[in-house]
Computed example of a mutant assay.
Amino acid sequence: MVEVLTHSRIAMRQTCPTKEWLWYVERLRPREFSWALSIGTAWHTALEVWQKGEADEDGAVAAGLATLDWIRPESEEEQYKLDLERARVEVLIRVAIRHFQQRNLIAVEHQFELPICNPKTGRKSRKFILSGKIDAIAEDENGVLWIIENKTVGTGLETFRETFGLNNQYSLYYYAVSQLYDKPIGGVIVRSIAKTRTEPKRKGGEIVESWNAYKQRLWEMYEADLDRYLAEDIVIRTPEQIKQFQEELWMETQERLWQAKTGVVRHNLASCNLYGGCPFKPLCLGVTDARETLYYTASQSHDELTLNETA
């Protein structure tokens, strides 16, 4: 059976092989959903239908917010959180659509599958293939292709930009497009928007601002300081960097084959408490009934190929 490797899967194994095994092989998912992932999915969905020309701004907002309809609040606190995130997402969508540069798109949400080859011999792996979904591909007036990635950012844009140089997702997509199209590639256009933690105004602990007034205030905040919240950056990859990516991708397959041969899936204990803690920590700690009560089994391994990713 051929296994699918994506950027998300490779990155998760780099974080912790056990985490990647539980997510992609056993298909376990935490029952407690992620607001960050939900917001990213809504924003990406809205931009997808807009980029495809399937909806105007209002239609894109409706499509994005519809991805949150499955959430069923069970308390006033959860209802407030949902209403808050719906308001924030709507503003993010409208700001992006009104300010991101229109481009000549030749592909939107382009999913691909490619063989993984030994860069020294050209031999194809019989066990693994490379897959992914690119937000969009544009072609300029000179016939040069540009890869477009849409990102919602929880940190400041300057901090986010510091990740460009060593982000393997851009290298992977750059390599994939070079295999799919016989045209020059200009680079990756990273369209990013920073999220906000601003909430409706309160007085004496009570909310005194309507949701419409809150959205208007958010809109004005973004408009007044666009450079702080919105960006379209160009990321370049050199032939040397793509060569290194190919070599590391092949090594990834060899390490996985060795793992399968030995039957040992390592734990990376240095990552257990990063970013609020690994969602699978209760399993690794042997918490009684954790598997049955805290997780469910997904129908697919690669959410990133069926859903819109956050990062």
Results as ranks from 00 to 15, higher is better:
residue 1 M to E: 10
residue 2 V to K: 12
residue 3 E to H: 13
residue 3 E to K: 14
residue 9 R to D: 03
residue 11 A to C: 06
residue 13 R to H: 10
residue 13 R to Y: 11
residue 25 V to F: 12
residue 29 R to C: 04
residue 35 W to H: 09
residue 36 A to R: 14
residue 37 L to D: 06
residue 37 L to N: 09
residue 38 S to Y: 07
residue 38 S to W: 09
residue 48 E to N: 09
residue 49 V to K: 02
residue 49 V to C: 02
residue 50 W to R: 09
residue 52 K to N: 11
residue 52 K to Q: 14
residue 53 G to V: 11
residue 60 A to Q: 06
residue 61 V to K: 09
residue 61 V to A: 11
residue 64 G to C: 12
residue 66 A to D: 15
residue 69 D to S: 15
residue 71 I to D: 03
residue 71 I to K: 11
residue 72 R to H: 10
residue 77 E to L: 01
residue 77 E to T: 03
residue 82 L to N: 04
residue 82 L to D: 01
residue 83 D to Q: 13
residue 84 L to E: 05
residue 88 R to N: 01
residue 89 V to E: 01
residue 90 E to H: 01
residue 91 V to D: 00
residue 92 L to R: 00
residue 93 I to R: 06
residue 95 V to N: 04
residue 105 L to Q: 06
residue 105 L to S: 05
residue 109 E to M: 09
residue 112 F to N: 09
residue 112 F to K: 05
residue 113 E to S: 15
residue 114 L to Y: 10
residue 118 N to S: 04
residue 120 K to M: 14
residue 122 G to V: 13
residue 123 R to H: 14
residue 128 F to I: 05
residue 129 I to L: 12
residue 130 L to Y: 02
residue 141 E to H: 10
residue 141 E to F: 07
residue 142 N to F: 03
residue 142 N to H: 12
residue 143 G to D: 03
residue 144 V to C: 05
residue 145 L to D: 02
residue 145 L to R: 08
residue 148 I to T: 01
residue 148 I to G: 00
residue 149 E to P: 00
residue 149 E to D: 15
residue 151 K to I: 04
residue 153 V to G: 02
residue 155 T to K: 14
residue 157 L to D: 03
residue 159 T to I: 12
residue 160 F to S: 12
residue 161 R to E: 10
residue 163 T to W: 01
residue 165 G to Q: 09
residue 172 L to D: 07
residue 173 Y to S: 03
residue 180 L to W: 01
residue 184 P to T: 08
residue 186 G to R: 05
residue 189 I to G: 00
residue 190 V to A: 12
residue 192 S to L: 03
residue 193 I to L: 08
residue 193 I to V: 04
residue 194 A to I: 06
residue 195 K to A: 01
residue 197 R to N: 11
residue 200 P to D: 03
residue 201 K to D: 09
residue 202 R to G: 06
residue 203 K to E: 15
residue 203 K to L: 15
residue 204 G to L: 15
residue 210 S to D: 10
residue 213 A to Y: 02
residue 215 K to H: 00
residue 216 Q to K: 15
residue 216 Q to E: 14
residue 219 W to M: 14
residue 225 D to M: 00
residue 225 D to S: 04
residue 225 D to K: 04
residue 227 D to N: 03
residue 229 Y to L: 01
residue 229 Y to R: 07
residue 230 L to K: 11
residue 235 V to E: 03
residue 239 P to G: 07
residue 239 P to W: 06
residue 240 E to T: 14
residue 241 Q to K: 13
residue 241 Q to I: 04
residue 243 K to F: 12
residue 245 F to C: 02
residue 248 E to S: 10
residue 249 L to Y: 10
residue 252 E to C: 06
residue 252 E to N: 06
residue 255 E to W: 14
residue 256 R to Y: 11
residue 259 Q to C: 07
residue 260 A to D: 15
residue 261 K to N: 12
residue 262 T to Y: 02
residue 262 T to H: 00
residue 268 N to S: 07
residue 271 S to C: 05
residue 277 G to Y: 04
residue 277 G to I: 08
residue 277 G to Q: 08
residue 278 C to Q: 03
residue 280 F to Q: 00
residue 281 K to N: 07
residue 284 C to Y: 02
residue 285 L to K: 15
residue 286 G to N: 06
residue 288 T to Y: 07
residue 291 R to N: 08
residue 293 T to Y: 10
residue 296 Y to E: 12
residue 296 Y to V: 09
residue 300 Q to N: 13
residue 302 H to F: 13
residue 303 D to A: 13
residue 309 E to L: 11
